[in-house]
Each structure stands twice: as C-alpha cells, then as structure tokens.
Simulated scan of single mutants.
Amino acid sequence: MKTEHFDQKTLAYVRVTGPYGEGYDVATEKLYGWAGPLGLAKGESIFIYHDNPELTPADKCRTDVCLAVPSDVNPPAGIELQTLPSGQYASIRKTVTENSQYALFWQQLMTQVVKAELTVDNRPCFELYHHYDMDSHHADVSFCTSVK
C-alpha cells in the first residue's frame, strides 16, 4: 500500500445501479462509443463506488463508470459530468485475473488502511484502470480509497 495525491479530475460517466460487477459492459460501451470518435477514449478509466455492499442492498449499489475528460466537454444525454476531488488516497496496484479478486483486493487495501491507522475521508473510493485486456478480462488496477 502507498499513499498518493490525486489532482482534481473532470469525469464523464454513466451510472450503474445494481450488484457491484454487473451491468458495466453496457455503460462502458455507451461511454466509449461517445468518447472514441471525439478522441477522448485515452483518458483515465475510473470506476467510482458509492456504497458499502455490506450495508447497502446489492440492487441499490451505485457505480459510476468514468472516463477523465477535459473540463469543457459537453456530453450527450445519458452521459453526465462530475468532479473527482483532489486529495490523498491510499492505494494498492494489482493484476486482476478473475472477477472474484476485486472484492479480495478491496479487502486487502482496507485491512492495510486500518493497520496503518489511516483515517478514511468522505471522498469517493475508486478503481483506476491502467490497462484492461478485452479478450482475457485481465486488468492492471489501482484500488484507491480517500484518506485524511
């Protein structure tokens, strides 16, 4: 685990409501289908998680499938904009080879945050995708939670 500072980012996003890990393909296709022709598809890919799945029913969990974009972009209906606030984040970078590993890596991060006696902030937690292989579904991902 390391702590790092992230600068503020403008994100175009499509919200998915339902169990974490489900329904992301449609949102991703919509987002990248719009961004690709505009030359925006190379921005950072970020998935923001708004709810604790241990406290929130699975069908109510909210995920924002995001792409970092210039602040002056004007997305079409169905794609929204938000600002990811700047600040300190605790993170771990992992290679994901199976979907079941996402929850495991989040647990590893949170265990390390507690062990390091860091205080979690109220900014969103997210996954930052450095690379995602469409064929194998393997991903190079940083798991990030905000800390004070």
Rank of each mutant, 00 (worst) to 15 (best):
Y20A: 12
Y49G: 06
A41L: 07
D72N: 13
A116D: 15
A116W: 08
K60E: 14
L40W: 07
A12S: 04
E117F: 07
P85R: 12
S91P: 02
V114H: 10
C144G: 04
T28S: 14
N74I: 14
D25R: 13
S146E: 05
V69I: 04
V114P: 06
L38R: 12
T95S: 12
N52S: 08
L11D: 01
D72Q: 10
F6P: 00
D72C: 03
I48P: 02
G23P: 02
L11W: 05
Y89D: 02
W34H: 01
M134V: 13
D64F: 06
H138A: 14
E4S: 13
R93D: 06
K60M: 11
W34R: 01
L40H: 07
R62E: 14
T3I: 11
H138K: 12
D72K: 08
E54S: 10
M134C: 10
K148Y: 13
Y49H: 07
F143G: 05
F105D: 08
L109W: 04
P124W: 01
T111F: 08
D121W: 05
A68W: 02
P75V: 00
L11Y: 02
K2E: 13
Q112K: 12
C66I: 06
A12E: 07
F6R: 09
T111P: 08
L104P: 03
A139C: 03
L31I: 04
K60V: 09
S142I: 00
T97C: 07
H50Q: 08
S146G: 12
V113T: 04
D51S: 02
P76H: 05
K60A: 13
D59W: 02
I46H: 00
G36N: 11
R123H: 08
L40V: 03
A77Y: 05
P19F: 04
V16F: 02
L118D: 01
K9L: 14
S100E: 14
Y102N: 05
G39C: 04
H137C: 13
A77K: 12
T28N: 13
